[in-house]
Design a protein around this nucleic acid. Structure first.
Length: 288
DNA sequence: TACTCGTGGGT
DNA sequence: TACCCAAGAGT
């Protein structure tokens, strides 16, 4: 559907947000850290944490040299703290396997801890300017609507990469911009709940609009309730340890008055399994 | 494939 | 006010 590209690219050039990782010369390490943080966390929450991280750990080797506990603590309230641990591991792998340089090859990126189909291609495209399809949830929604005429995308799959490849310009730089433009459109105009079709540069070519905005339903499964969940318990444990001056607290003192003792135990066990918490001498602490 | 994994902004 | 959902990845 090549008639989507020119208006989308023009719109992006005129309307793209001025985000830190889009600055000229931001660097592959900065892009990589930003992509880790942006995995399921909103842009507005990432920006302040990202600046803090890059100031403290300007290179992969700097992060690799720090104890994982520092990474988990500086991750603060970004959520999914396993990402902090995985980013630390990825930094170690970059130091050990790639001489401290963020790899450019997609397969090499995919081999790093915490990097999947999206992040690997985002780094190769946005940091190094190579030509690959970059598909996140925003792009999937834009394609579902504009191309497939559906209100929401189905479950993620490898087909998404092929769909984006099919409309990718030949030129590397144009391809990179289209990747970014599709994401940007989904993030600020073609949003999940209240799309601003009046402001959309490709509304004239949108299959969903042409079909009269049918509600095709949503294949995605709903998020589990957070209140009262194990995730909430895990988060509470880590909040305590992050706030402790030495990253540790007596085992029995952590969540002592949590309403569900079984759930408390389950949360601590799973955190230990994940490597986010360690138990030493009757104390819980972040991984050293 | 389906499930799990935090935290908070937007409506 | 509840609920949706967010630049996903690993198992």
């Amino acid at each position: 559907m090549p008639d989507l590209d020119p208006p989308l690219i023009a719109w992006y050039r005129a309307n793209a947000r001025d985000l830190p990782w889009r600055a000229e010369g931001f660097g592959a390490w900065g892009v990589l850290v930003s992509e880790f943080m942006l995995q399921q966390t909103q842009v507005s929450r990432v920006i302040p944490r990202l600046e803090e991280w890059l100031e403290r750990w300007p290179t992969p080797a700097d992060l690799a040299a720090a104890p994982p506990a520092d990474a988990v603590r500086l991750w603060a309230n970004l959520g999914y703290p396993r990402r902090a641990l995985w980013l630390h591991r990825a930094a170690t792998e970059i130091r050990d396997r790639h001489d401290g340089v963020v790899p450019r090859d997609v397969d090499a990126l995919l081999a790093l801890t915490g990097i999947g189909d999206y992040t690997a291609r985002a780094v190769a495209v946005f940091a190094y300017g190579d030509r690959h399809p970059v598909v996140d949830t925003n792009t999937r929604r834009v394609l579902a609507r504009a191309v497939d005429g559906k209100s929401q995308p189905g479950a993620p799959s490898k087909v998404d990469l092929a769909s984006m490849s099919a409309i990718l310009p030949t030129d590397d730089a144009d391809a990179a911009i289209l990747n970014a433009a599709a994401m940007e459109l989904g993030a600020v105009v073609c949003t999940s709940r209240s799309p601003q079709c009046d402001a959309c540069p490709i509304s004239h070519a949108c299959a969903w609009r042409a079909a009269g905005y049918p509600d095709t339903g949503d294949d995605r499964r709903k998020q589990a309730r957070y209140e009262g969940s194990d995730r909430q318990a895990r988060g509470a444990v880590l909040q305590v340890l992050r706030a402790a001056s030495d990253h540790s607290a007596p085992f029995d003192a952590v969540l002592a008055e949590w309403p569900d003792a079984l759930q408390r135990a389950r949360a601590i066990d799973s955190l230990v399994r994940d490597g986010l918490v360690e138990v030493t001498d009757g104390r819980l602490h972040l991984p050293r």
